[in-house]
Design a protein around this nucleic acid. Sequence first.
DNA 1: ACCACCATGTTTACAATGAAAACTTTACTC
DNA 2: GAGTAAAGTTTTCATTGTAAACATGGTGGT
Lengths: 216, 216
Amino acid sequence: MTNSALAEATQSYHHGNLRRELLKQALEHLKQVGPDKISLRALARDIGVSQTAPYRHFPDKNALLAALAAHGHRQLTEVTQAAVDAAEDDAQKFIDIGLAYIDFARANPELYKLMFGPVLESPMEFPELVEAGQRAFAMILTVIQEGINRKHFVQDDARILANGAWSMVHGIASLWIDGMYRCADGTFPSDETHLDETVIANSLKLLVNGILYKGE
Amino acid sequence: MTNSALAEATQSYHHGNLRRELLKQALEHLKQVGPDKISLRALARDIGVSQTAPYRHFPDKNALLAALAAHGHRQLTEVTQAAVDAAEDDAQKFIDIGLAYIDFARANPELYKLMFGPVLESPMEFPELVEAGQRAFAMILTVIQEGINRKHFVQDDARILANGAWSMVHGIASLWIDGMYRCADGTFPSDETHLDETVIANSLKLLVNGILYKGE
DNA sequence: ACCACCATGTTTACAATGAAAACTTTACTC
DNA sequence: GAGTAAAGTTTTCATTGTAAACATGGTGGT
């Protein structure tokens, strides 16, 4: 068994392939207790390994969380890219892309909080994370630039359009996740989850209306 | 000195009026170390009081943070209300209100993170906080409703307009605070803080354009 | 086949934290 | 002036992140 790939696949090696297992368990714990309360020791305990074993794979807790966040960014980019590819070339396209992004955030709230919240320290120091972020932004920029080329937009500064679109989508996702989306009377929606998509889509439309060039 | 109001005003009582002092120091620590790393013990130490003294004024750490967040919401509502009052009745009005909100977030990033981030646990259990949030939303609704009454908007569902506007503003504030606002090439702005207002205002305009009724 | 090495885990240890429990002090009330 | 309840203290405990020193076992060079 000199093949390390085989070693990874099986249960062998010294004590299993920990790094993968750690990230898997971390994601599980993340979903259950939220990003703040993740404990390295609890992870190690649940995996059945010593409390300091994780430090052979990550310099510290923050680094593990960063790896988790990077994975999340890649996933998010994936689902958004899928929406981009599937979309027809009209206004609905932008709505659909936004909805895909927001759906991911709603389906993985704790992960999303980790990715964009203040839990992670000095995220810019993790190349993996920075690259994932740039990839996501590049994707948005591509879509935007296409729109600019086709003269779909009221303005042709890609930076403003991309940041504006991202802000809107991120804002909706954040507020919704934190339960801050409100009814007209200031109270919170009870359980009409079937209305969500419509409400969100309508909010998105506001921005799309502001961006799209309305041919006379 | 039977007057408890006087007692609060002066330095007297048992060992000074702690509650006020705690919140003050907490705000200071918040600015310096961020919401995650605030430590009750450090607060007590800096004030010169025993480590468990805070527990006579707040049931736990979370409650202290909630009080801090509530204070932040009141401040935020205040500055935004001021912008509402100062604004003339045209499109620029909405830009100005949004900018005031975002300026507060940029001036008090750690406080803003505490108010809207995932740090605070079960925020809905703090009536003080819930009320502050409702007051803020009510203010937005008032402005929106006025606009609806004057037929300024392309749509008359106040909930959608208010949530949409808030999402946009919150999204911009969050991304900016976390340093995720990007240049057109996907990199981050270096130090052109003088350009900020313009860039932000332009993003805001995208939404305002989408909301305002454009009389033929 | 041997042996030295390095990656991976373990044991032990330490300091910081949030919080509970029991005790002490002080200001105000009757 | 005694008693009471609020405000503060001391002591204690479990949990956490992480450093340091040690153990182990698979691998590669000779």
